[in-house]
Design a binder for these strands. Sequence first.
DNA 1: AGATCGACCTGGCCGC
DNA 2: TGCGGCCAGGTCGATC
Length: 288
Amino acid sequence: MPELPEVEVVRRGLAAWASGRTVASVEVRHPRAVRRHLAGAADFAAQLTGERLGLARRRGKYLWLPLEGPSGRAVLAHLGMSGQLLVQPEDAPDEKHLRVRLRFDDAAGTELRFVDQRTFGGLSLHDTVPGSADALPDVISHIARDPLDPAFDEAAFHAALRRRRTTVKRALLDQSLISGVGNIYADEALWRSRLHFDRPTAGLTRPRTAELLTHIREVMNEALAAGGTSFDSLYVNVNGESGYFDRSLDAYGREDEPCRRCGTPMRRSPWMNRSSYFCPRCQRPPRV
DNA sequence: AGATCGACCTGGCCGC
DNA sequence: TGCGGCCAGGTCGATC
């Protein structure tokens, strides 16, 4: 399940192996992999063909490549739950769940593939926000900056938490408040912060918000370091299991296992059609 | 406008 | 062994 660190590793791979190349052809093998394109997959392919790809960018879990032509557009990617962007030799066998293939007009001998078992992810083509330095696609202008972005506004984030009538984990997963955090990193950061997922955000003090952000950044940077080590090959080859799943998680998936701080058995609570893992002793639920 | 919830999707796993 | 059903979960759009 790619969250911010995994997506950043993919971005670096794209910057190294796809940016600067010109698209020779696009093959869409599954219509659902092309998103929000009313004119259809064939038109998507036609629009992209002949375009030179600019430097790969990322905000939260979204990735995009600005097109260097005069259109001022960008090709946007979201990996969803199971998406991968792979730079593969042109003669490598097709993956079972290959959805989109981009061939290039150079002699590098590699192509870019979007592979996605569950098709929650996809590619799309968008206008970019006028004047934005990083060619932000207009459809993701509602996505907040992520906590690793130097321009992330901590004071504004805290103010938004205080204003909202919601709970802390819901807020962490709300990509319009802070982006890049998914279920796994939310649970990890909350455990490190000794915060129960159901704590109201309105009661958070500024130091508590600062501590939470510090832990989010720590867990993401550790994951990035782990994922980065697997990125030394010729190919972008990253998925939700990149590196981070090899290291031990402190909260996620550890139901009934001892808390690494106090030894109390960890718990799993059903939460918004998914699960929250927490230590019932270190992370006390709020009084109702 | 803010909050909530269902739909989307497929493979792995569990229980009968 | 086979099969049905559940689970994983990020995002968007509909609804209140």
